[in-house]
Simulated scan of single mutants.
Amino acid sequence: MHARAVAATTTALLGTAALLLPAPHARAGSDRPTVIAHRGASAYAPENTLAAVDKAAELGIAWVENDVQRTKDGELVVLHDDNLKRTTDVEELFPGRAPWKVKDFTAAEIARLDAGSWFSPAYAGARVPTLEQFMDRMELHHQKLLLEIKNPDLYPGIEQQTLKVLANEGWLDRSHLARRLIVQSFSADSVRTVHKLKPAVKTGFLGTPSVADLPRYAAFADQINPSHGSISMGYVASVHYYTGPHGRPLEVFTWTVNDADAARLAADYGVDGIITNSPDVVRDALPDD
């Protein structure tokens, strides 16, 4: 058994006490965490819109996170909530359709909605993009995608459909798979399904599994992506002890960090990436490589 495996086994056996051990290395990847624009640069433009992608590009942020849901007629759209109420004018356009679930509206109906006015009058008329439209805009900016499959229990087969769209848009070629795409979910079953269907795709599990459970996740996830309030230096080190399905140490992308102090703390913990609504604030808070 090699050194990393021994360390991992020791950590799993010791449980909480092992989390107090110093990390054998600060980070699985580079010295400076990757900065990921959460739902685009969502502190400055309406989340999950093309405007938020554009703003991230304007700020010089390469990685963008988004959320994927499915319409009544089977179109994949980029939206965080499983209903349309919070971020669109759906109540005004379709007053008799409560509770305004995404799955109860066609793609054409959703395309009529204003997804920008709730954020600012300056963004009035912004639309809910399809996944294809979102990726086309990211391709225009040469950006990288952290794609979250939302609520997969509501959308049977969404993993295969998402992979099909990614393939059709050219995002499953060697270049994208190596450097520009990660698929994640809060559902371990969904992440496992993506890995089974397309083992070459880099995957992430959203959550904070116990140290004892990490070997199970390492079989199908390349990343463990917890909320920033749930981690410690010891936990991040424990994740890094394990090797993921592509033969590299598991990574940690933590969310949602929006201020300089929290960003520096996460970096000190040794995380590999920081997901943030304010990517410029986080970037500027981090030390140079």
Rank of each mutant, 00 (worst) to 15 (best):
E251V: 05
F253W: 12
E251S: 12
A237S: 14
P249W: 05
T193S: 01
A188N: 01
L197G: 01
F253Q: 04
L214I: 13
A219L: 13
T256K: 02
R264F: 12
T254A: 12
P209G: 13
K202R: 14
P209V: 13
H195R: 13
Y241G: 04
E251P: 03
R216H: 01
T203D: 05
S187V: 10
R179I: 00
H176N: 04
D173T: 03
L181H: 02
D213I: 00
R248W: 06
A219M: 09
L172W: 09
L181W: 02
A219Q: 14
F220C: 02
N258W: 15
H240W: 02
P215S: 09
H195V: 06
S232G: 08
Q184C: 03
S185Q: 07
F205L: 14
I224Y: 00
W171R: 03
T203N: 15
L181T: 00
Y242V: 02
D189R: 12
T203F: 09
Q223W: 15
A178S: 11
T254I: 10
A212W: 08
G234Y: 08
S230L: 14
R179A: 12
M233K: 14
V191K: 07
L172C: 09
P226K: 10
P249H: 12
Q223D: 15
D259R: 02
A237I: 13
V239K: 02
D213S: 10
P249G: 13
A200I: 00
P199H: 12
I182H: 03
K198R: 14
P199C: 08
V239F: 04
W171A: 07
T256G: 09
K202G: 07
I231L: 12
D261G: 02
I224Q: 03
D222K: 10
K202V: 14
F205T: 08
F253K: 07
R174Q: 15
T256M: 04
T254S: 08
R216D: 11
S230Q: 15
A266W: 04
A212P: 07
G229E: 13
T203C: 00
G207A: 14
V211G: 06
Y217R: 00
N225D: 15
A267T: 10
P249I: 03
S190M: 06
G229K: 10
R180G: 07
K202Q: 11
T193W: 04
G244F: 02
L177F: 09
G170Q: 11
D222N: 15
A260K: 11
V211F: 12
V239C: 02
H240M: 06
H176V: 00
R180C: 01
V252M: 11
Y241W: 10
